[in-house]
Amino acid sequence: MSEFEPKIVAFVCNWCTYAGADLTGTSRIKYSSNVRIVRFPCTGRIDYMLLTKAFAGGADGIIVSGCHPNDCHYTSGNFYARRRWMVFRRLCDFMGIDTRRIIFSWVSAAEGAKWAQIVNSANEEFKKLGPYENYHKLSTQEIFE
């Protein structure tokens, strides 16, 4: 098909965003299908190396989402995650990794519509940015040069 379909990986926490995505399903709200959801117990568990691994594996965009501050099922997982994301985004930005391709959000278990909106707007954004060639190139062909 002509139009570029970005490959999106979503790292979500089980108690809020995963449940929010379930609610999107039960309310039959349609959203673009090129996103794959990976379940974590908490955003605190999401390792930043998985993000670079996803880019290396061919993802064009990443969504990382979890509970709103103070709503974390484990009290503080999302606070540590937020700080980790701040440092990681700064490092990636300094190293020229495209932080526009990583969308962070808080989606609660009651925000089914918001999840669909986040995925759709992320999809539009990544479509505009096109495939993440220079990272994929790095992790595939150049290995064998």
Binding site: I29, K30, Y31, S32, A116, Q117, N120
Partner: peptide, 8 residues
Amino acid sequence: MSDSHNHL
């Protein structure tokens, strides 16, 4: 939101 059923 690609509301499929009412784009006609």
